[in-house]
């Protein structure tokens, strides 16, 4: 019932509580009375006078795990999104009122708990700031999605799922979906070294074969994910699909590895986006000689048709600004924390 009050502030919970949630999740909400009360308080405080400004009370972070100095996991409560999410989709997150809209691939979703999982790498100003701010109980100003066309799981019999760097977490839901559909799944993930490895058990649980590749050989095989793919290709002559998520250079290498074998290969593209609804065209990519918008026509495309040079070029579009943003932010960090953003 408390959730209803929160909903009146403009949050999505309004009808989630009464109609949308599957029964188990609804019970769960009631059990979590304490959390709910916190939600209401934060919502009341954040509620501005104007209904037209950013009036949403935000989306609560319910769990956090740090995989390394730069990689962290956030669980965000959004029951309706958790219910709608499918492998391959992403969300757009705004961390605070003056924040930018950043696309993050959904790394996992729990429909019973009503949460989605995001794995973030602190690389720029926004993601580093989030690393500081996004503790359990904090709220993200906006979370919208699920965006993009879900992955096609289809009826492939033997699939290689490749994740590298920030693509390791996003490949997981797809890998699990393949496994659940009865496909033979070979997981290939790449890290720089042993310390950065995460979700090993989680992957193993849903893989028929699991290959870790590290740059220094401190875990699994020494080499890049493409070396892992070659191992898989040697072991199996009947692989009929490969899905790769990671930095563009890695996805390009994966595409070139499978091209001679004629294996259907899908990649998830990560261009710069603003709205994520097809409205701005900032995320346009060249696929088979045509302009496509990754946010609504993708984010997954046939890897053999993607112009990766174009993508990599466009990703450098704001490099100078990104550097400036980090510099200004770092200056604001010392001697005291910037505290520029009102946050409860």
């Amino acid at each position: 019932m408390r959730i209803m009050i929160n909903g009146a502030d403009g949050g999505l919970y309004y009808f989630l509580s009464s109609e949308m949630l599957p029964a188990p999740a609804r019970r769960r909400s009631n059990l979590r009375g304490k959390n709910v009360i916190e939600t209401v308080q934060a919502g009341d405080q954040a509620c501005p006078a104007s209904a037209a400004s950013e009036s949403a009370p935000g989306f609560e972070i319910t769990a956090r795990e740090d995989f390394s100095d730069v990689t962290y996991l956030l669980e965000v409560r959004h029951p309706m999104l958790a219910r709608a999410a499918a492998p391959g989709q992403f969300v757009i997150v705004i961390s605070h009122e003056r924040g930018e809209r950043i696309p993050l691939t959904i790394a996992d979703f729990d429909r019973n708990e009503g949460t989605i999982t995001l794995v973030v790498q602190a690389v720029g100003k926004t993601t580093r700031e989030m690393q500081q701010r996004c503790q359990v109980g904090a709220r993200l100003s906006s979370v919208v999605g699920p965006m993009g066309i879900p992955s096609e799981i289809g009826n492939a019999r033997k699939v290689v799922c490749v994740g590298g760097g920030l693509g390791v977490a996003p490949i997981f839901p797809q890998l699990r979906a393949f496994k659940q559909s009865g496909t033979y799944v070979i997981g290939v993930v790449g890290f720089r070294n042993r310390e950065l490895v995460f979700w090993e058990e989680k992957f193993k649980e849903h893989c028929d074969e699991f290959i870790i590749c590290t740059d220094d050989g401190s875990a699994g095989i020494k080499g890049l994910v493409t070396d892992g793919i070659r191992v898989a290709l040697q072991r199996h002559a009947d692989i009929d699909k490969l899905v790769a998520i990671g930095p563009p250079i890695m996805m390009k290498a994966c595409a070139e590895t499978t091209r001679p074998h004629g294996i259907a290969t899908t990649v998830s593209l990560n261009p710069i986006m603003v709205d994520g609804t097809g409205m701005c065209g900032g995320c346009r990519v060249q696929v088979a000689g045509e302009t496509k918008f990754a946010c609504v026509d993708g984010p997954e495309f046939n890897a053999h048709d993607v112009d990766f040079e174009d993508l990599m070029g466009r990703l450098r579009r704001f490099t100078a600004y990104e550097r400036q943003a980090v510099e200004v932010w770092e200056q604001g960090q010392s001697p005291t924390e910037s505290g520029a953003t009102p946050r409860t």
């Binding site: 003056r98 930018e100 100003k125 603003v274 600004y321 943003a325």
Partner: peptide, 27 residues
Amino acid sequence: HGVLSANELLTRCNLMGAGDFPHHDTP
């Protein structure tokens, strides 16, 4: 770099406050 839609320019400016970068995060 430097080719964009009017929608992107206007959205960055009007909705995201990009004219106020780096005070607003959107460039």
